[in-house]
Design a binder for these strands. Structure first.
Length: 266
DNA sequence: TAAGAGATTTAGTCGGGTAC
DNA sequence: GTACCCGACTAAATCTCTTA
């Protein structure tokens, strides 16, 4: 059963190539006219292997080796395409399994659903991030001076009216990050009244609140934590450009489509 | 409601282009 | 030269709509 659309397309094709259409089989196909130049002649439709009958039809004459070579290339090409399709379908199946109620969806609808889901997750993450002390996406140090509440239990003990509240956000790849922060602040001899560590999605956020007294100023604390951030950044860079990673990166070919290039700027 | 026609989806094939 | 990607195409299967 063929559609009118396809029939029309075939008709167009016929006119353009002067009789290419009229059947995809070996009897009428382009391949037959050119000898054994297409796999529609040589390949068994189901297995992709050389069918016995078709193989018998291959003329054994001068240049037969070349034809055999071409047939082998076509076969491996078909198999490569099959593997490629399998890979695409496997990833689509993975996506399907990650979302509910996608069993009946076709591929296009599934992709649309995945896009919607990712958008939803991103907006939700942004919303949650506004109200919770989750690590920011950027490696950064923020320092602020806040007035210590009178009713604070630390107010009387420290006698300081202001707190220096410092926050460091970065990747959590560095195992002794907290020790680094302690070491960096140690020369300032801070009187720490509170600290908090939050990790999320490979990011860490360390918040330390100290009395603003002695050497503890917004500037000195900022400088100390900046040095920690520098160490983290150089450690991350060293990891990123390790020989193993660059080797792996080199094995993968990059192809930038129109869609990729436009979306990468977002 | 069943049958038929048209529309849509999917898999397979082919040839050309490209990066390595 | 090779492996991979991609667009164009066909055939088959399946879905949807219309009509008797």
């Amino acid at each position: 059963m063929n559609s009118g659309l396809f029939s029309g397309a075939v008709g167009l094709y016929d006119g353009f190539y002067g009789g290419f259409g009229g059947g995809h089989g070996p009897e009428h196909g382009f391949g037959q006219q050119l000898g054994a130049s297409t796999s529609s002649v040589l390949l068994d439709g189901e297995t992709g292997e050389l069918g016995a009958a078709a193989a018998a039809d291959v003329p054994k004459r001068k240049g037969g080796g070349r034809e055999e070579k071409a047939a082998t290339a076509l076969r491996s090409h078909s198999e490569a395409e099959r593997r490629r399709r399998e890979r695409i379908n496997a990833h689509l199946a993975t996506l399907r399994s990650m979302l509910p109620c996608t069993d009946k969806m076709d591929k296009a609808a599934l992709l649309a659903e995945v896009i919607n889901h990712v958008k939803k997750l991103k907006s939700e993450a942004a919303r949650v991030g506004k109200h919770c002390p989750v690590p920011s996406g950027a490696d950064e140090v923020t320092v602020e001076v806040v007035q210590q509440p009178q009713e604070s239990p630390h107010h009387d003990r420290t006698g300081a009216a202001f707190l220096v509240k410092a926050t460091l956000s970065c990747g959590d790849g560095c195992a002794d990050l907290f020790a680094d922060v302690r070491r960096a602040l140690q020369p300032l001899a801070p009187r720490v009244v509170g600290s908090e560590v939050t990790t999320l999605g490979g990011r860490v956020r360390i918040t330390v609140a100290m009395s603003r007294e002695g050497a503890v100023t917004a500037a000195s604390v900022h400088q100390a934590l900046d040095s920690v951030l520098d160490r983290v950044a150089s450690a991350a860079a060293a990891f990123e450009f390790s020989p193993r990673d660059s080797l792996l990166a080199g094995n993968k070919r990059r192809r930038v489509s129109t869609f990729d290039s436009s979306s990468s700027s977002c």
